[in-house]
Design a binder for these strands. Structure first.
Length: 329
DNA sequence: CATTCGTGAAGACGAAT
DNA sequence: ATTCGATTTCACGAATG
């Protein structure tokens, strides 16, 4: 999956080089000598290269840009430009291109200037929508990170999830759906694709949106993106549940055999894979004499005891395993 | 007493219309 | 969007150890 990590790196481009203590700050120059300022991150200071003048960080002056010698002058020149706002991602500092073909005095613009404006609008629009998507993505990736660490999902699943999300974003699948729901759905899909599935029940408490919402989002992206996700295999849940229960390797192997047999005879069609896995563990624990209670398997697998009961009787019936018969007797 | 087993009503879900 | 069928869950009681 090198393709995925490449896509990932692509947008991670805004990392700062924090290892360097000295970074040129080209935006500002020293008020005394006009030389470029240098940011000393170790000391948290901004310093002039040439004359050594120290300009404190975080002391950016938003006030008047000229000195005022009396109140008249102060009123006149108090501020240049619009105040900045945190509500816009660029703090309102970017240019806005009007849709009207008129200049500042209201006269119409014509000819080549008009076409030029048109091209500018096109690009402006492209950058703006790109930024909107980037911000969206940033938030979603944060959520994916949060949830996957809460669920103990490995790194590669996060990457897959972010790729899925990115595709959904590019295909304009986000309309009317919340970022959170889509992020959850992407992670769910990724976990299943990576053969380390988590059930919807496990996602419910870590997601910020309701189960209904993200499961709908999940179905939606699977259909729209054409993701090939097969029904979850009960075997994939086994190792995790087994280790949660501190079960014997023997018993786990037995459970796996039981499951495989059961799937041969088709007991699993239409049944919840999680319940099947839980039942197999329970059945195996009886057969192996390492007794665990139904309640215990239920607590690690989030299925009801009833389901475990039903599944495990089916599993034992389907199992023509002579060994199983002997163990039960 | 804890665990297991069975049952019917009720909810959730996917498929079909 | 609603309806239908299958599955799961809940709540309960009974049996078993």
């Amino acid at each position: 999956m090198s393709q995925q990590s490449e896509t990932l790196r692509e947008t991670g481009g805004e990392q700062r080089q924090t290892t360097e203590t000295q970074v040129r700050d080209d935006e500002r120059v020293c008020p005394e000598c006009e030389a470029a300022l240098v940011v000393d991150e170790a000391h948290g200071e901004t310093v002039c290269e040439a004359c050594g003048l120290v300009v404190e960080e975080d002391e950016i002056d938003h006030g008047p840009e000229w000195r005022a010698f009396d109140s008249n002058e102060r009123a006149e020149k108090s501020r240049v430009g619009a105040p900045t706002t945190k509500l816009l991602h660029d703090e309102g500092l970017s240019s806005v291109i009007d849709w009207q073909d008129r200049d500042a005095k209201g006269r119409t613009i014509d000819g080549s200037k008009r076409r030029k404006l048109q091209r500018l609008r096109t690009w402006d629009e492209r950058f703006r929508s790109k930024n909107a998507q980037e911000r969206n993505l940033k938030q979603a990736l944060g959520e994916i990170d949060r949830m996957s660490s809460a669920l103990g999902l490995p790194e590669n699943v996060r990457e897959t999830a972010s790729v899925v999300y990115r595709r959904a974003l590019e295909d304009d699948l986000l309309r009317g759906r919340s970022i959170e729901a889509m992020a959850t759905a992407s992670l769910y899909a990724a976990a299943r694709q990576a053969s380390v599935p988590r059930s919807l029940d496990e996602f419910e408490p870590v997601s910020r949106v309701g189960r209904k919402e993200f499961s709908r989002a999940y179905r939606y992206i699977v259909r729209e993106l054409g993701l090939a996700i097969e029904p979850a295999n009960p075997l994939e849940y086994l190792p995790r549940f087994a280790s949660d229960l501190d079960m014997d390797g023997e018993t786990t192997t037995r459970a796996r055999a039981l499951l495989e047999e059961g799937m041969e005879s088709g007991v699993h069609s239409g049944k919840s894979p999680v319940g099947l896995a839980a039942a197999a563990l329970y059945a195996a624990s009886i057969l192996e004499g390492e007794k665990i209670t139904q309640k215990e398997v239920c607590s690690v697998s989030d299925v009801s005891e009833v389901t475990v009961r039903n599944r495990y009787t089916e599993l034992l019936e389907a199992g023509t395993d002579p060994d199983a018969a002997r163990g039960a007797a």
